[in-house]
């Protein structure tokens, strides 16, 4: 998602009926009824979507109150007794919870640190290719993993990293010792990040490529006339031109740190890698769904949502200041 995209969206969201708002005071009941009547078919269209949002988005938000209750399935949300901040106190005092928070941040940070530069490099390289067929072929190949499901990617990882898999065959061939990679916590983050880069780097480069095609070619020509070689043109013209896009995407990635892809963790972790692999979302899943501690898990989930929103708002503010692009 590019900065421009955010701006476009924001523009549209705030583009409400300013004309109507301005004349609002004069509008009497009758004209309001007239308006409602005039739009009645539009209301009919949007009725089902509104019901959808209420049931599957707003009802769960209301459901957060179970984290302030001793939720009991038989008694239901309303019937369960209030528990105050009991669950919040409980998880905040639990050292394991903080380990999980730490794991979430570390996995996200490493993922951004390693994963962020690749799409930029791919886009810069593709931008230098003049053979259209070659460019198209590389694009087709590098975009492909984006469409492969998490289960397949994890299945490939499990097979390729197993003791008789491709990687260990290579290691054994070079005279090394076979390693059960997925059984050691110290390898987990590396495996996760490599697979993320493999799956997403090509696809994310699309946005940078689009930004690159927006560069005015006369500037590049001027640089060439001034004697700049291709490396210098990249450094002094191309790269500065896409810096706003880079900055916006980086800030937004940092803002979305809490919403790490947990499906991959869920598929790859096991008892022996929990130490580094367990993140907030997988912890919520285990405590809530597998152990039925609904109230506790909801409280932890709310912590994640709140921190996530705070990070996102901060990221948006910074982005607004730096490059005048923002989500809202």
């Amino acid at each position: 998602m590019s900065g421009k995209l955010f701006k476009a969206k924001a523009g549209k969201t705030s583009l409400t009926n300013t004309e109507n708002d301005a004349t609002m005071p004069e509008i009497r009941k009758t004209s309001r009824i007239k308006l409602l009547n005039k739009n009645k078919y539009l209301y009919a269209l949007i009725a089902l979507p509104v019901v959808y949002y209420i049931i599957f988005h707003y009802a769960p938000m209301y459901g957060i109150i179970v984290s302030f209750k001793d939720y009991n399935i038989v008694k239901g949300i309303m019937g369960s007794p209030w528990a105050g901040f009991k669950w919040y106190e409980k998880f905040l005092a639990d050292p394991y919870f903080w380990k999980v928070v730490r794991n979430t941040f570390l996995l996200s940070l490493y993922n951004i640190a390693w994963g962020f530069p690749f799409p930029i490099i791919i886009a810069l390289l593709l931008n230098e290719v003049r053979n259209r067929k070659f460019k198209k072929a590389i694009q087709s190949v590098t975009y492909l993993p984006h469409f492969i499901s998490t289960v397949v990617v994890c299945g490939m990882l499990v097979s390729v990293l197993s003791s008789d898999g491709l990687v260990n065959n290579i290691i054994a061939g070079l005279g090394g010792e076979r390693i059960q990679f997925l059984m050691y916590p110290e390898y987990f983050r590396t495996i996760y990040i490599i697979s993320e880069v493999w799956q997403k780097a090509g696809w994310t480069s699309i946005i940078y490529l689009a930004a690159l095609t927006g560069i005015d070619s006369s500037i590049l020509d001027a640089a060439t006339i001034d004697g700049a070689n291709r490396m210098q043109r990249i450094r002094h013209v191309t790269l500065p031109a896409i810096t706003p896009t880079i900055a916006t995407l980086l800030i937004m990635d940092l803002g979305k740190m809490m919403n790490l892809g947990y499906e991959k963790v869920l598929l790859l972790y096991n008892g022996s890698t929990m130490e580094t692999a367990d993140i907030i979302a997988t912890y919520v899943y285990r405590r809530g769904i597998l152990q039925n501690s609904f109230s506790y898990a909801t409280a932890v989930g709310l912590f994640q949502t709140v921190v996530g929103v705070v990070l996102l708002v901060m990221a948006n503010q910074i982005s607004k200041k730096l490059s005048e692009t923002s989500l809202w």
């Binding site: 209301y62 459901g63 957060i64 919520v284 909801t298 949502t305």
Partner: peptide, 8 residues
């Protein structure tokens, strides 16, 4: 904003 996994 969302209710999260468990409330849903």
């Amino acid at each position: 904003i969302s209710g999260g996994m468990i409330p849903l």
